[in-house]
């Protein structure tokens, strides 16, 4: 696991199960207001990672791809929700803005797929992940922290993974 710099973290997943486990560890660390951007082509492992995040976070609802509904909400018993926004079908920044990402962030963490399509309206502090297809089972992932909250989040994630793997 090479470390590019203090605010970046690379992970090489050998199976969907490993991607999911990484998601679970990330999900367990999330707090309301956290923004996680997941950039990667179809088949890069975004949905698998989100499934793990939702489980680690403690969601009651099952993860599905939000391509057709724009935003999915995975609830937790304490009333907070993990929001899962797919920007693939958003036609303009104005349309994305009307979804009121700030209101979603007030209710819990927010995961965004295809975040590059709505980048100008996103808060500048966030965790940005690039996911890439390497081979049938293998995926590479790079996480970059923007802002102190995300630097400490990434530090903790790195520690939990080094401690466990």
């Amino acid at each position: 696991m090479p470390i590019l710099d203090a605010h970046t973290f690379e992970f090489f997943s050998k199976s969907p199960e490993q991607t999911r486990r990484l998601g679970i560890r990330l999900g367990a660390l999330l707090q309301p207001g956290d923004l996680i951007c997941l950039q990667g082509d179809l088949g890069a492992g975004k949905t698998t990672l989100v499934q793990g995040v939702a489980r680690g976070w403690g969601a009651l609802d099952e993860v599905s791809s939000p391509t057709f509904v724009l935003v999915n909400a995975y609830r937790r018993p304490n009333g907070t929700q993990l929001s899962h926004f797919d920007a693939f079908r958003v036609e303009s920044l104005g349309e994305a803005e009307e979804l009121d990402l700030d209101a979603l962030l007030a209710r819990g963490p927010l995961l965004i797929e295809w975040p590059e399509r709505v980048e100008p309206i996103l808060p500048v502090e966030r965790l940005w992940a690039w996911l890439e297809y390497e081979s049938e089972e293998h995926r590479s992932m790079r996480f970059a922290a923007h802002g102190t909250r995300y630097e400490s989040l990434l530090d903790t994630l790195r520690q939990t993974i080094y401690g466990a793997d």
Partner: peptide, 11 residues
């Protein structure tokens, strides 16, 4: 009257 998050959004 909505408040826009980013100034000068392209339409």
């Amino acid at each position: 009257i909505y408040l826009h998050v980013a100034g000068g959004l392209p339409a």
